[in-house]
Every structure is written in C-alpha cells, then in structure tokens.
C-alpha cells in the first residue's frame, strides 16, 4: 500500500513561512517597502540629496516649496531660516533618526535580555534586586527620566541615544524575564538541564531563541518610540547639536516659524509621523507573523 501514502507536504523554510504570513498584512507590507526605501535613502543621502545638508543659501531664506507658491524648483520642500534645503536635511536626518533608533534599541535590548534572563534564572536575591530596580525606573515618567539623564550627561547625540536606551531598558527586562520564566518550566528545558547543560548554555542557547519572538516585536516598537523620544528631546532643546539635521531638532527650531513659514514645521513632523507609523505597522505585522499565540484577532 506504499502507493497510497500521501506525499510528505514540503514544509516551507521558516523564513519563507514567516514571509508568507507577513505578506498577508497589506499595511505591514507597504510599511516595509517604505522602510526599505527610507533606509536606502538614508544610506545614499550624500548622493541623492540635491544639496549639502548644512549649506546655507543666504539668498533664499525661508523660501516656500515651489508647489506652494515658491519660485525655485531647486528646493523641492522649501528652505529653512538660514536657507538650507529641507529635503536634503530630511534625507540626511533619516540617517540620524535611523541610527538613533537602531543603536538605542540595541543598547537596551542586549543588556535588557541579559538582565531579564538572569532575573529568570536566579529568582532569589539577584532576580528580586533586578526587578526592584526596574520597578524604580518604571515608576518615573519615561520622558522625565530621559530629560534628567540628558541633563546629567549633557545634550548631544550620543547622550540622547544613551538616555533613550536607559529609559527603554525595563520593558525588555520584564519581557525577557516573563518569557524565560514560562519557558523554564517546559520539558525541553528540563531535559537539557538533566542532560547536563551549563547555566550559560541553557540561558542563551536553549531558552533565549524561544523567547525571541516577543522581543523582536518589542524591539520594532522600541525603534519607533526611540525615534519619537529623540524627537521629543530635540524639541525640548536637549537633542543633537547644530547643524545636525536631526528631525526633532529641526522641528524645535522650526517652531519659531510656525506662523510665518508652515513648511518648515510641517515637513519634519510628517517625516517623523510617517516613519513611526511605518515601524508600528511593521511591528504589528511581525507580531502576527512571528507568533500566532500573540495574534490578537
């Protein structure tokens, strides 16, 4: 009866499986396309930007975009208060914003995961101490904590990133700990423990890969909130130093011109909004694709 056996269904590779379920979410797909374009634009900014981001065209201060009454097509999105091309600044700013998001997520993800795993594996004094510390950090409004940290370290790009990373730490710790705790009771962990796997191996080789899904989703969302937080700090005058075209800082200076030159305010704001929206859409898509358990409807 060998003839009647069904052919073993060809399981798609995990990556392909992921892509298939990610693709279902149209919003997430569009967001992904935007994000890829943004990354490309950021990488290629020096070549595709029409002007240097800090070049001041002093004959064209606050010149409006050509499609809104301006006269020069050389400044597609208009110029700012010292005649810098806004489009070029946004493109170069994309590098900064992506860099801020990426580094600050890494800087809070890695220590966050380590601390979370440690807290899960040693629930005694060490674990309690870690979680208490996180409670303390969670008890302060994040932006206020970030402001205080930037005030301590001094304003600047690196310190902004650091402040955002510190503020974001507790959520990774909690998440890593919670997922690790569930995994710890699973049979496969007990099995490999009995098989004599060392503590480190158990942590990072056995348990961690199974906790990755929620962490990746959290990282995507962390990416977007990092961009928002950086913009908020920039807006409060605590962000990147001039003449860096960081989006939040651009918005903060543009505020002076909200009534006289709307485009200076609108463009960076839209850039932030669209990018954060794209990241959140991707986060949703990732969550649905990576972890059917987490799928909320």
């Amino acid at each position: 009866m060998a003839d009647n056996t069904l052919p073993t269904p060809a399981y798609p590779s995990p990556l392909k499986e992921f892509w298939l379920s990610f693709k279902v979410n149209k919003g997430a797909t569009v967001a992904l396309v935007y994000f890829v374009l943004l990354v490309l634009a950021a990488l290629l900014a020096p070549w595709i930007a029409p002007h240097a981001p800090a070049e001041q065209y002093r004959d064209a201060l606050l010149s409006p975009p050509p499609w809104a009454g301006g006269n020069a097509w050389r400044f597609v999105l208009g110029t700012d208060e010292v005649g810098r091309d806004i489009l070029s600044r946004l493109l170069h700013g994309a590098r900064l914003s992506l860099m801020i998001g990426f580094t600050s997520v890494l800087l809070s993800l890695i220590p966050g995961v380590v601390l979370g795993l440690v807290a899960a594996f040693y629930p005694g004094k060490i674990g309690t101490a870690i979680m208490r510390l996180m409670d303390i950090m969670m008890a302060l409004p994040s932006l206020l904590l970030a402001i205080a940290i930037v005030a301590v370290l001094g304003p600047g790009l690196g310190n902004t990133v650091l402040a955002i990373a510190i503020v974001g730490l507790p959520s990774y710790v909690r998440l890593a700990r919670a997922s690790a705790m569930t995994e710890l009771n699973r049979d496969y962990v007990i099995a490999s423990r009995l098989a004599g796997a060392g503590q480190l191996r158990l942590m990072f080789d056995t348990v961690l890969p199974n906790c990755m899904a929620p962490l990746i989703v959290q990282a995507t969302l962390g990416f977007s909130s990092a961009i928002l937080d950086a913009a908020a700090l920039g807006f409060l005058g605590l962000g990147a130093p001039p003449p860096m075209p960081e989006w939040g800082t651009m918005l903060a200076t543009a505020r002076d011109y909200i009534q006289s030159a709307w485009w200076v305010v609108t463009m960076p704001g839209l850039a932030i909004l669209i990018t954060v929206l794209a990241l959140n859409l991707m986060g949703d898509g990732l969550r649905d694709a990576l972890d059917p358990k987490l799928k909320k409807g």
Binding site: G27, S224, L228, A231, A232, F235, G248, L251, R255, I258, Q259, W262, V265, T266, G269, I272, L273, V276, L277, L279, N280, L281, D284, G297
Partner: peptide, 30 residues
Amino acid sequence: RGTVLDHGVMGAALTGYSMPIFWWGLILII
C-alpha cells in the same frame, strides 16, 4: 471586523499612536 470601517478606524488609531504629540499640539493650535 475586516470591513473598510475596521481598517479605517484602526488605521487612524495607529496613526494617533505614532503621533509626535508636540507636533500634533502645534498643528491643532494653528
């Protein structure tokens, strides 16, 4: 669920969630 209304409402919610609120405030005032 699954209708245009659902997508519209949820899209708006996600946009709101992604809003840099200081910018949002300025735009609303203007």
